[in-house]
Design a protein around this nucleic acid. Structure first.
Lengths: 197, 197
DNA sequence: GTCAGAACTTGTCAAATGACAAGAGTTATT
DNA sequence: AATAACTCTTGTCATTTGACAAGTTCTGAC
């Protein structure tokens, strides 16, 4: 394992444990790729070509609402898969952009390669399916959070689960992710800081 | 096809077209199952055992918030798959209940059967994956709708996309699905009717 | 048919949030 | 260093929504 793929081995193991040999046959498909700050991993209107394991750096996905404002749909931190799953698996144009917030480093696999690997290896299939199921579960939690919790609670949770994002992304991006205006988030943050002190 | 599985054949074809023969080998796994009004398809704390194709009837899924109120997470109409995907695929206890709003009729397959079928048939795998990807895409749309649109717009969209739900489910269930209180939805509905007249 | 509970509407008031604008601080570019 | 663009905070006011309560209608159990 002197190929620098240490992190991706660990990641696969944490999602769906398998033998050393099996992991190796999965990992071999992944190729290195870096992005500079502000570079796009995916642009709206194109088909998502990468299933990208983010090893270092921070990334966000966003789309536009009808007023032309952009809305953050996801933040990605190290050790996550970055991919617009609908576009990638259905081979249709994406409705969102994915952009590097910082310089990033990671490993990718293309759709065709993934199909090939899926075909032969049942453990890879399971791994792929779990990524999908986990993303679904996570999105559902966020949905529930939108339905049940106040903006302040959503802010507090993001602070806990992903504090580094606040150093990498401007307030406005975080605000649209949480579902409030940046003005409002600025006030919420103030209140939150007051409670904590 | 005198086995009454007409609808499920059509459904599979609409999601992921395949040959008559392939579809047959998929469909043969599904067994009939009916539920009476108010009967539970899944109860909180149990592992979801069914991947259920809903042929007739209406169903909703809900969970509880910290105040003990229930929150509707999904409505299901005929020709949809009813399943708590996280619980079903990860074999973990579900956090939500799925309950019949009306008498229902449909077809189910268990996890083990599905695994078996996935193993041998690549077209079944594709079908299964598309169900997952489609559910994900749909949830994402709803998420965006929560972020960008007013409660009134969400109400209007649900009215268009799924008008029959309004005859099957009380206002309170619909309100928690849209993300407002029933009081508020009552007012929104009034306003909406006024605009339309 | 009567009763109890659920479902829905409406009123009043308070709280949360958005829209808009001004201003201070920061960063990038030339 | 000067400038412009971006970032964040804060003030004011309007709008939306929630909380609570009262009252009507509907529905199901007995």
């Amino acid at each position: 394992m002197s190929d620098g793929k240490h992190k991706i081995y660990e990641f696969i193991q944490s999602i769906y444990p398998m033998s050393e040999e099996q992991r190796h046959s999965v990992v071999q498909y992944f190729k290195p790729r870096v992005f500079q700050k502000n570079e796009y991993l995916l642009e709206e209107g194109r088909v998502c070509q990468m299933y990208y394991f983010l090893e270092e750096g921070y990334v966000r996905a966003y789309t536009h609402d009808h007023h032309g404002n952009d809305v953050t749909t996801a933040f990605y931190s190290p050790n996550q898969i970055v991919c617009e799953l609908s576009s990638f698996f259905k081979r249709i144009p994406a409705q969102e952009n994915i952009q590097a917030l910082t310089d990033t480093k990671g490993w990718y696999i293309t759709f065709d390669e993934l199909q090939l690997a899926f075909h032969g290896m049942s453990y890879f299939r399971e791994f792929g399916r779990l990524i999908l199921v986990n993303s679904y579960a996570q999105l559902k939690q966020r949905m529930l959070s939108m339905l049940q919790e106040t903006a302040e609670v959503r802010y507090a949770k993001l602070m806990e689960s992903n504090p580094l994002i606040f150093q990498k992304a401007p307030l406005k991006m975080i605000a649209s992710f949480i579902g409030v205006t940046d003005t409002s988030l600025s006030r919420i943050r103030k209140e939150y800081a007051r409670h904590r002190s």
